[in-house]
Design a protein around this nucleic acid. Sequence first.
DNA 1: CTTGACTCTAACGTTACGTAATAGCTTAAC
DNA 2: GTTAAGCTATTACGTAACGTTAGAGTCAAG
Lengths: 254, 254
Amino acid sequence: MKVYSVRELSKLAKISVRTLHHYDDIGLLKPAKRSEKGYRLYHQEQLLLLQQILFYREMAIPLKEIAQIINDPDFDVLKALEFHKGEIARQIQRWEQLLVTIDKTMLELKNNKAMINDEALYRGFKPEEAKQVRQEAIDKWGEEEMENAEQRIREKGNTGWKNHQENDEEINQLLASMVGFKPDDVRVQKVILRHFKQMNLYYEVSKERYRGLGKLYVEDERFTQYYEKYKEGLARFIQQAIEVFCDNDLKVIT
Amino acid sequence: MKVYSVRELSKLAKISVRTLHHYDDIGLLKPAKRSEKGYRLYHQEQLLLLQQILFYREMAIPLKEIAQIINDPDFDVLKALEFHKGEIARQIQRWEQLLVTIDKTMLELKNNKAMINDEALYRGFKPEEAKQVRQEAIDKWGEEEMENAEQRIREKGNTGWKNHQENDEEINQLLASMVGFKPDDVRVQKVILRHFKQMNLYYEVSKERYRGLGKLYVEDERFTQYYEKYKEGLARFIQQAIEVFCDNDLKVIT
DNA sequence: CTTGACTCTAACGTTACGTAATAGCTTAAC
DNA sequence: GTTAAGCTATTACGTAACGTTAGAGTCAAG
C-alpha cells in the first residue's frame, strides 16, 4: 500500500507542508503512522480525509467544525451546511452593498468631492475667511478644485467660528426634535429654509448642489453618523426635507 | 468645546472601548489629549476622524491602509478604493460559486448520497462482499439508504480488493493518457465502456446514475481532486466522455 | 465613606497557518 | 567515504483586529 510523505501529500492536495503539520498538531488529520525517525506517513485513507477537509474548508467552515463533521458521524452536516449557506448569503449581501457604497464614494470623490469639502469648510470658518475661501474656490473652480479645497482645509486648520457653529447646532437640534414630522410640514420646511440660507450665507449652494448634499447625508457614513448622533433617523429626515424643499420652494432661491 | 470620554465616544460610534484603546495603541486614532490622570479625551475632530475610519473599515480596508488614507494626503484614495472594489468583487464571485457548490452538495447529501457511497463502496471491496452489500442495498433501498451505506462503510472498513483496484487504476491511467482527445473519440469511448462495465459488474448502474456520477466527478471536490491527481483535467474529461457515452451508446447497456 | 460606574495598563486568547531557525535524515553523485 | 541537495522534525514567533479577563486607580452620588 502506497504511503505518502508530507511533501507528496502536500503536492497532491496543493497545500503547504506546514498546513499538514498544523492539521496534525490540532488533531484534524493525523498521519497513519510515523516512520522510525518520526517522519509522518499518510495512506489513502488520509488522502481521502484530506480531500473532505479541503472541501469543507473551501466553504469557509472553521477547522474545528470540520473536525466535528468528519469525526462525529452523528454530526448533522446538512444543518451545518444550511447554516453556513445563510452566513455566506448574508456576507454576500453585505459585500454587494459595500460595492455600491464604494462606487458611490468614488463618484463623490471624482465629481462631487468639492461638495464634501464645502461642508468641511463651511463648518468651522469665520465669515471673512469663508468668503475669501469661497471666492478662491469659485475662481479656480473646475481645474484644481479638489487639491485646493484639501489644501485650504489643511492650511486653515479648524479655527472654528462660534456663532456659526452655534447656529448650526441649533438648527440640528431643532430638526432633531422634529424627526417624525412629515418632511413637508411647514415647521420643518422653515428650519430647512434657515439651513439653506445659512449655507448660502457663505456659499453658493444651488438647488442641485443642495439636493446633492441632502443625498450625502444618508449615503455617506461620515455625514450619517454625524447626524445620527443628534437623533436616530435625523440624517434621512433632513434628506427628505431637503428633497421636499428643493422640489417646492424654488422661489426662495432665486 | 465638548470633550468625549472613551465610553461616550464608543457609544456614539457604536464600537467598543477596547477598539478605541486599540486605535490609540496602533496610532490610528489618538485622543486629543490625556486628562491629568491619564484618561483619554477626544474632541470633535477625533469624532470626525473616527467616522472616516469606520467608514473605510466597513469597506474591509485594513487599518494600516486606513491610517495611510487619513494621514497621508498624497495617498490615492481612488486607487485604493478601486483596488478593494476588485478584491471584493472577486470575493463575491467566489462566495457565490461556493453557494452553488453548497447547494449541490446538500442535494447530493439529501437525495443522491447513496451514489457517493456507491463509489466509496465500489472502491475497495471483494466481489463477494460487494455483491452481498449490493443485495442488501437493493433490499433496503429507499428507506434507510444513507444510514445503511454509511454503516456498511464503517463496518467493512477498507479491505481493498486487489484486482479491482488494479483494474480501476489501469482505466484511470488509460483515460489520463487520453486527456486532450475529443470525448467521442472511439478509443476514449472504449475505455469508458470498460469503466461502465466495471461498475456494472458489482453494481446496477443505470444510464441515469452513471451520468450523475459523471457530474459528480467535476462538481465534487473530493472526486475532482482524486482524478486530477492522475492528470490535470481528467475529471472533466471523464465527465464529458460519460456524457457522450450516455447519449450515444445506450445499446450497450441493455 | 462606601458604592457603582468608569478609567487605566498589561497581557493572554483567538484563526489558520507563514516564516524562520536549528538540527537530524536520505540519497545520489563524486 | 564524503559531500551536497533535498527532505524531515520541532520549536516558536508573527499576523489582524480586537475580546476578555485581571488588577488597580478614579470619580460622582448618597
